[in-house]
Amino acid sequence: MTYEEHIRKELLHWRKKMLKTPGLLEKGSKAIQGKINNLYPQKFLDALTGTIKRLVRGVLFGLEYIPKGKPLKNMDLSVRDLRALEVLKTYKRVAAAEGAGTGAGGFVLGIADFPALIAIKLKFLFELAHIYGYSTEDYKERLYILFVFQLAFSSQQKRPLVYHKLVHWEDTVKDYPQSQAMEKFDWEQFQVEYRDAIDLRKMLQMLPGIGAVVGLIANYGLLEDLGKVGMNCYRMRILQEKGLY
């Protein structure tokens, strides 16, 4: 079995995970998350919503996250995967250190951790795109990154829709022309799903005494989740282009 055949089997297993129907546990967790959201101060929710909207706009129309150098071309998928894992390892350490530092500072620094963590995640995805050979100077690739981010932090109820958009990317991107992307992209769902995906872990980060430890573990785990989804999305695209998926 070739490496690409092995990855194809992994992707088929991953697809089942992305498309599975939410169970009682997922539905119960969603209800609990709704109650948790009511515990947040409104200024915290407003700050988070504003941060996510600003970063979404920045990713779509800005160039600040584009890595230096050209995307990697003419490289085996196995080599790309190794490089991706190396970069992910670095970003997990950065996120963990950032989470530990802000977690030690209580509520105020806990709020500051949200935009910092989002920026770390986005920078990681930009580097990941280049590793797999896609130029983030292309607006369509920056849009793809947003959907990858959304898939990683969506509830199981919303994941199948986002997954299908990524699987059928050439059709999806036609619905989001650059001049209308901000109006058509559902950033409200984007920020709600993201907030719900991380809220319990991040809320514990703000507690005195344990915030630093929780912040370290939470940020490390969130980057781990994003890394798995990001790598699989780009693996899927490469295999699709070769007619193997």
Rank of each mutant, 00 (worst) to 15 (best):
residue 95 A to G: 01
residue 8 R to G: 00
residue 105 G to R: 02
residue 230 G to N: 09
residue 205 Q to D: 05
residue 1 M to L: 13
residue 9 K to M: 09
residue 91 Y to D: 04
residue 172 T to E: 11
residue 208 P to T: 08
residue 32 I to R: 15
residue 169 W to C: 11
residue 192 V to M: 13
residue 206 M to K: 14
residue 94 V to Q: 09
residue 71 P to A: 13
residue 188 E to Q: 15
residue 202 K to Q: 13
residue 241 E to I: 02
residue 157 Q to E: 11
residue 107 F to P: 00
residue 12 L to A: 12
residue 86 E to M: 12
residue 64 E to W: 14
residue 113 D to R: 00
residue 129 A to H: 02
residue 3 Y to K: 09
residue 151 L to Q: 01
residue 112 A to C: 06
residue 180 Q to A: 10
residue 214 V to Q: 04
residue 244 L to S: 08
residue 181 A to G: 00
residue 129 A to V: 03
residue 86 E to R: 11
residue 138 D to W: 07
residue 15 R to Q: 12
residue 37 N to T: 11
residue 165 K to F: 05
residue 41 P to T: 04
residue 123 K to G: 12
residue 183 E to C: 01
residue 52 I to A: 07
residue 104 A to D: 02
residue 53 K to W: 11
residue 239 L to C: 06
residue 244 L to W: 09
residue 178 Q to A: 10
residue 2 T to F: 07
residue 85 L to M: 12
residue 31 A to L: 12
residue 8 R to A: 09
residue 234 Y to C: 10
residue 101 G to C: 08
residue 143 L to N: 02
residue 88 L to C: 07
residue 214 V to P: 03
residue 126 F to M: 09
residue 242 K to D: 04
residue 101 G to T: 11
residue 35 K to N: 09
residue 197 A to E: 12
residue 149 F to W: 08
residue 224 E to R: 05
residue 44 F to A: 08
residue 118 I to S: 02
residue 127 E to H: 13
residue 14 W to L: 05
residue 162 V to T: 01
residue 166 L to V: 05
residue 105 G to D: 02
residue 43 K to N: 13
residue 228 K to F: 06
residue 190 F to R: 01
residue 209 G to T: 08
residue 245 Y to V: 07
residue 34 G to T: 07
residue 204 L to M: 12
residue 225 D to Q: 10
residue 58 G to Y: 03
residue 244 L to T: 01
residue 67 P to Q: 10
residue 35 K to E: 15
residue 11 L to P: 06
residue 215 G to K: 04
residue 24 L to A: 15
residue 12 L to S: 11
residue 108 V to I: 12
residue 96 A to I: 00
residue 215 G to I: 00
residue 232 N to Q: 15
residue 33 Q to C: 12
residue 186 D to R: 10
residue 72 L to W: 10
residue 201 R to W: 14
residue 58 G to H: 05
residue 214 V to W: 00
residue 161 L to K: 14
residue 165 K to S: 06
residue 178 Q to R: 09
residue 163 Y to V: 01
residue 226 L to N: 00
residue 24 L to M: 14
residue 148 V to L: 09
residue 171 D to H: 15
residue 72 L to Y: 13
residue 136 T to Y: 03
residue 140 K to T: 08
residue 41 P to V: 01
residue 68 K to L: 14
residue 204 L to D: 10
residue 152 A to W: 03
residue 137 E to N: 14
residue 235 R to M: 04
residue 131 I to Y: 03
residue 73 K to W: 06
residue 231 M to Y: 07
residue 197 A to P: 00
residue 170 E to M: 07
residue 216 L to E: 06
residue 31 A to I: 09
residue 205 Q to L: 04
residue 116 A to Q: 08
residue 192 V to S: 12
